[in-house]
Computed example of a mutant assay.
Amino acid sequence: MSIVLSDSKELDSVQVIELYKKNNWSSADKPNELLNALKNSHGLISAWDKDKLVGLANAISDGFLVVYYPHLLILPDYQGKGIGRMIMDKLQEKYKHFHQQILVADGNSVEFYAKCGFEQAGKCTPMWIYKGAEHD
Rank of each mutant, 00 (worst) to 15 (best):
M1N: 05
S2A: 13
S2V: 14
S2D: 15
S2I: 14
I3Y: 07
V4G: 00
V4D: 07
V4K: 15
S6C: 08
S8F: 02
S8E: 04
L11F: 02
D12A: 13
D12N: 15
D12G: 07
L19R: 07
Y20T: 03
A28T: 03
A28C: 03
K30C: 02
E33L: 12
L34A: 03
L35Y: 05
N36M: 10
A37H: 08
L38N: 05
K39P: 00
K39W: 00
N40Y: 04
S41A: 15
I45T: 12
I45P: 12
A47I: 06
K50N: 14
L56T: 11
A57C: 13
A59D: 02
F64S: 03
L65F: 14
V67P: 02
V67M: 08
H71V: 11
H71Y: 14
I74N: 02
I74L: 05
L75W: 01
L75H: 12
D77S: 15
Y78N: 09
Y78Q: 12
Q79W: 05
K81Y: 10
K81W: 03
K81P: 02
G82R: 04
I83E: 04
G84L: 08
R85M: 06
R85G: 12
I87C: 09
I87Q: 11
K90M: 01
Q92C: 03
Q92Y: 01
K94M: 03
Y95G: 01
K96W: 03
Q101L: 14
Q101T: 08
Q101C: 02
A105L: 07
D106S: 14
N108L: 12
S109V: 01
V110F: 01
E111V: 08
E111N: 07
F112W: 00
Y113K: 07
Y113T: 09
A114L: 00
G117K: 04
F118Y: 15
F118T: 04
A121I: 00
G122Q: 07
K123H: 08
K123P: 00
C124W: 10
T125S: 12
T125C: 09
P126H: 13
P126A: 15
M127W: 05
M127A: 05
W128V: 10
W128M: 14
I129H: 09
D136F: 05
D136W: 01
